[in-house]
Design a protein around this nucleic acid. Structure first.
Length: 460
DNA sequence: TCCACTCACACTTTTGAATAGG
DNA sequence: ACCTATTCAAAAGTGTGAGTGG
């Protein structure tokens, strides 16, 4: 079992004893596992698609995780954001996905804050944490705080845990990120793969009416005689699971990834891709196995866990690029600019990239997380000049709020997204590929932080 | 013509207020 | 008066299929 890597910040000074022990507990034991891994895997093997609509659409399966290893009485904030898997746009062509060109400019990157945040570790650990109400939209002007995605692009969710007493006092130094390869999906405005449609209908209670035994059959039959063909197709499809192995599913769905040879031939991973003929996602598993990752869910949840500092989707791939190449066909627009969350899964190299200034600040200003002790010094906004600075401009906390916390919890969304929401990947890449920059970021320079999409938008 | 997208629709589950009973 | 359980209507979440626009 892989232990959760330490996200230990580059603390500038010798840590107080309390902090030392706290670090181990805080940053070394947090464990996150994905609930319903089998369901996710079933979708994943076919090629998960998530509908995005203007008013916002929930995910299905929805993100649900279990947490352990938190300090019971310390408060944490849980967030989710969506990271592009690669730099491509896809199209569904003849029962398979194909690369259809470069990805469109990244939409305003938003982060979903779990409505229970902040809550004590005991709260997060006592039951599974559901992100049921997280919604995806393709409306770049969305005012509801939904996560904005591009249709026909691939994404995967990232789960972030931040120890913070409130939404103001985010402790960047104990920021931890987890991803699960099987949660990657293609955002679509209408389902492309009928097998995915069937899976959704079969498993989503709201779609019960579309199941074969449902009344919908009659409704559709009455509605349009032409539906007969589709119904026949559907019923045929419904029998497929018995006839087709999951491998067949994947093969039919994802040969396209390797089909666009012209687009892929320049990629280093081309050979690897061909090996993953059944699913682009299988590469993740493959790599996981290479790294000794057991296939079963119980252990996988651990292996899937990664820990990162607050990272923008746009630059994360670069960091991953440093650690390992991605097997994904999508993993290489150009060279460094690709990679994906799955790479993060593969690369077990501890990403301890932390803003030094931030870390030292946290170190100096916070008392170590003394589990359930007397009132810790949980710094308020005033304790974090850097954060306060942010409020003066679009930054970590200085943005508009959408959520249950009202005006007193300004962690809702950036008021000014602008260029910060479309950070030039290369620029960021360069920044983060350079350790000096990586660690040398003066945390007080919130402007830099504010470029990172992770906190560019929080919502409920 | 093709494809991505939007919208209205019928159906379902969920939610919350109103009511009844102990 | 208070609490709990039940009922019911409204709201919200689904995929479908027709229509639209580039």
């Amino acid at each position: 079992m892989q232990s959760i890597r330490d996200l230990k910040a580059n603390f500038s000074g010798p840590p107080p004893p309390a902090m030392s022990s706290g670090d181990a507990y805080l940053q070394g034991n947090i464990r996150m596992s994905l609930e319903d891994p089998e369901l996710w895997r079933t979708f994943h093997e076919i090629g998960t698609e998530m509908i995005i609509t203007k008013p916002g659409r929930r995910m299905f399966p929805h993100c649900k995780v279990n947490l352990s290893g938190l300090i019971p009485c310390a408060k944490y904030i849980l967030l989710v954001d969506m990271v592009p898997e690669d730099g491509f746009r896809y199209k569904w062509n003849k029962e398979k996905w194909e690369v259809a060109g470069k990805a469109e400019p990244q939409p305003p990157c938003r982060t979903y804050l779990h409505p229970d945040s902040p809550a004590p570790g005991s709260h997060w650990m006592k039951q599974s944490i559901s992100f049921l109400k997280l919604k995806l939209t393709n409306n770049t002007l969305d005012q509801h705080g939904h996560i904005i995605l591009h249709s026909m692009h691939r994404y995967h969710p990232r789960f972030h845990i931040v120890q913070a007493d409130d939404l103001f006092s985010v402790r960047w130094s104990v920021f931890q990120t987890f991803t699960f390869p099987e949660t990657s999906f293609t955002a679509v405005t209408a389902y492309q793969n009928t097998k995915i449609t069937k899976l959704k209908i079969d498993h989503n209670p709201f779609a019960k009416g579309f199941r074969d035994e449902g009344t919908t059959k009659k409704r559709r039959a009455n509605k349009n005689p032409g539906d007969l063909d589709k119904k026949v197709k559907l019923s045929q499809m419904n029998r497929e699971p018995e006839e087709d192995s999951p491998s067949d599913f994947c093969k039919s769905s994802f040969e396209g990834y390797e089909g666009d040879e012209a687009a892929l031939q320049k990629r280093k991973e081309a050979e690897e891709i061909k090996e993953e003929r059944y699913s682009p996602w299988s590469a993740e598993r493959e790599h996981g196995n290479r790294n000794g990752s057991p296939p079963n869910a119980e252990s996988r949840d651990v292996y899937n866990a990664e820990q990162l500092v607050p990272a923008p989707a746009s630059y994360q791939p670069y960091r991953f690029h440093e650690y390992g190449k991605s097997p994904s066909p999508s993993s290489s627009v150009g060279s460094s600019a690709s990679a994906s969350g799955r790479s993060s899964f593969e690369s077990r190299v501890p990403d301890v990239a932390v803003h030094e200034h931030e870390s030292s600040k946290a170190r100096t200003q916070e008392v170590g997380p003394s589990p359930c002790g007397p009132p810790q010094h949980l710094p308020g906004p005033q304790d974090y000049p850097a954060v306060l600075n942010v409020t003066s401009k679009p930054g970590v906390l200085g943005h508009h709020i959408y959520g249950p916390y009202g005006a007193e919890q300004p962690l809702g969304q950036w008021s000014g997204s602008g260029a910060a929401q479309y950070p030039p990947p290369h620029h960021l890449s360069a920044d983060y590929a350079t350790p000096a920059v990586h660690h040398g970021y003066p945390h007080g320079n919130v402007t830099e932080w504010s470029q990172y999409p992770l906190f560019s938008y929080s919502c409920w």
